[in-house]
């Protein structure tokens, strides 16, 4: 057996590491891996006496509920949300994200996606936004997005306490440098190579002299995930919990 963990567990552990120091982590819809990472972070922080709070949009678990969507955005505007996750049909080298569509001629593009959701606001207001996209290819990681749902960086006069912090894919982990508006490779997942990342990335990025491998989750992390996180994340994401851990929602 080459590994006793699955890709999802590797990504969850890596994201939980990025979330260190975040008092309130919010998670949007359709985000089971970021949601699990937030719960892992909360578990570790609570073990250490911390009070990390997690809000997962769309779940029926009472402790996660805010006073609706207005409250989520208003509290983010006040600085009460420390971390959030966004994705994109396209993500470019300046961390611009596109949730609208592919091709010229907006609004009649050749591919139309759902729309920008809260990205055009939360990307500005939440200090640590982690971009997450499981398909790492030249189709998704592009030189320049076809529609900017939310820009990666802003001119200095624009009020922007928040922005992109990292980009996590199925191949690797990038960190984003806001000053330089540029991604830097932070680690490559086990079983993958720098060449593979380069071949599948449509934008230019910085590479450190020694490329490190994304740390595999240790035994203790895996047991927290399988015993504690899995039954909780099964409430908003039953299919995910069943597929990855064979677990149903806690009674």
């Amino acid at each position: 057996m080459s590994a006793d963990y699955v890709l999802e567990e590797l990504l969850i552990a890596a994201i939980a590491g990025l979330l260190e120091g975040c008092g309130h982590i919010a998670v949007g819809v359709s985000s089971p891996i970021p949601g699990s990472a937030a719960l892992l972070r909360r578990h570790r922080d609570r073990e250490a006496g911390g009070r990390t709070r997690v809000s997962i949009i769309g779940t029926t678990i009472p402790e996660f509920r805010t006073d609706g969507g207005v409250d989520l955005f208003d509290s983010a505007g006040q600085g009460r949300v420390d971390a959030f996750f966004l994705s994109g049909g396209q993500i470019d080298g300046r961390a611009n994200i596109n949730l609208v569509g592919v091709g010229d001629g907006y609004p009649q593009q050749k591919v139309r996606w759902s729309g920008s959701f809260g990205s055009a606001y939360l990307y500005f207001m939440v200090p640590k936004v982690i971009l997450f996209r499981l398909e790492h290819s030249r189709r998704t990681m592009v030189e320049s997005v076809d529609f900017i749902s939310a820009p990666g960086v802003s001119p200095p006069n624009v009020h922007r306490p928040g922005g992109p912090y990292a980009l996590v894919t199925d191949l690797c982990l990038f960190r984003f440098d806001r000053e330089r508006a540029r991604f830097a490779l932070a680690s490559v997942h086990p079983g993958h190579t720098l060449e593979e990342v380069r071949d599948n990335t449509g934008f230019d990025f910085d590479v450190p002299e020694a490329v490190t491998e994304t740390a595999a989750p240790d035994g203790q992390t895996l047991s927290i995930l399988r015993e504690t996180v899995a039954p909780v994340i099964a409430d908003p994401y039953p299919k995910f919990a069943r597929r990855v851990w064979g677990v149903s929602a806690a009674a």
């Binding site: 505007g77 609208v100 907006y106 920008s116 055009a120 606001y121 939360l122 990307y123 500005f124 207001m125 529609f147 900017i148 749902s149 939310a150 820009p151 802003s154 001119p155 624009v158 009020h159």
Partner: peptide
């Protein structure tokens, strides 16, 4: 008025 948005194609 609303924060954010500036620089978005929206």
């Amino acid at each position: 008025p609303l924060r954010g948005l500036i620089g978005s194609d929206i």
